[in-house]
């Protein structure tokens, strides 16, 4: 029982990370049809930013707001330089552009920081673990679950209650008509990139302590995990991203816990097989409609 409770805590923590990543990606997909393969590189660059900040003597605690700000600005800069010129281009053009952005970010990282992993130090306080009734609650996992819940709540309030949210939803559904009604669509898309960047910054804060160091390649794995989560949950909605992220977290934790050890190297492949099977039965994902094509 204790063992199971431990798995639940772990699954919620991993799942929250995936859900946050999926939210950031899903937002951009909704607003401009962009599948952003450069998303994980934002997290990598947050790692480099942290190492540089520490080199110039900024403490980890002061780096927390700076990292979120950095990721937000980097995301907006990427929009301005790479995606704004391809405004209204077909999704395939945007997808290829995002690959280009990922390559540029990775090459720039190697040029500036070299090919070796770049380490940073994490304060001991972050590694703190509480034990309640035999179940371990690492601070970072608790923080991840709480942050995930907070971001999801804030984002849904923003979308449902505010004028900005209204303009985001309207632009996502029909950009042309939104513009006819006087909505500044470019500004809305820029804000979507800013929010998506801020979410990447938050994920970086939760992930970097676990990684301990970054390399130029570290961005690929979170991007792919986020895509699997989105596909699992259904594209283009908050609930889809959250369901998908949590389901993927549960699946991975279950595999890690109960697969025979000989199978463990194939854990990720098995996840993909299961997701592929699920999507062939429910093309819209867990939260999506079953017959998306008929709509």
């Amino acid at each position: 029982m204790t063992q199971f409770a431990q798995h639940v805590v772990d699954a919620l923590s991993i799942g929250s990370t995936y859900a946050l990543l999926a939210l950031g990606l899903s937002l951009l997909f909704s607003v401009m049809g962009l599948i952003n393969f450069a998303y994980g590189d934002l997290i990598v660059w947050c790692g480099y930013f942290l190492s540089v900040a520490q080199a110039v003597g900024i403490s980890f605690w002061w780096s927390i707001p700076l990292i979120v700000l950095f990721a937000t600005l980097l995301s907006v800069a990427i929009w301005f330089l790479a995606f704004r010129p391809f405004d209204r281009a077909p999704p395939i053009t945007l997808l290829l552009t995002s690959f280009g952005v990922a390559l540029v970010l990775e090459a720039a990282a190697i040029l500036i920081f070299g090919p070796n992993p770049r380490a940073y130090t994490i304060p001991d306080a972050i590694g703190r673990v509480w034990t309640v009734g035999g179940v371990r609650f690492p601070l970072i996992e608790v923080a991840t679950i709480a942050t995930g819940a907070a971001v999801v709540t804030l984002l849904s309030l923003l979308l449902r209650r505010t004028t900005l949210g209204l303009e985001l939803l309207a632009t996502a559904e029909n950009r042309g008509v939104a513009q006819l009604m006087g909505v500044r669509a470019n500004r809305v898309v820029m804000i979507a990139f800013a929010i998506s960047g801020a979410i990447a910054g938050v994920v970086a804060l939760l992930e970097l302590p676990r990684l301990g160091a970054v390399t130029s390649q570290s961005g690929l794995s979170p991007t792919i995990e986020a895509f699997v989560a989105i596909i699992l949950g259904g594209l283009g909605s908050i609930s889809g991203a959250v369901f998908g992220g949590l389901a993927l977290g549960a699946l991975e934790t279950a595999f890690a816990a109960w697969l025979p050890s000989a199978w463990l190297p194939y854990q990720q492949a098995l996840v993909f097989v299961l997701v592929t099977a699920l999507v062939s039965v429910r093309p819209g994902g867990l939260a999506g409609r079953v017959a998306e094509a008929s709509a």
């Binding site: 559904e173 029909n174 042309g176 008509v177 513009q179 006819l180 009604m181 006087g182 909505v183 500044r184």
Partner: peptide, 22 residues
């Protein structure tokens, strides 16, 4: 279009363009 709408020229497009999810 967005600037013209703010200046006071507003089009009800063909097919109405209602936001179905809102």
């Amino acid at each position: 279009a967005e600037r013209r709408a703010r200046a006071g020229v507003v089009l009800c497009p063909e097919g109405r363009g209602v936001f179905t999810t809102l």
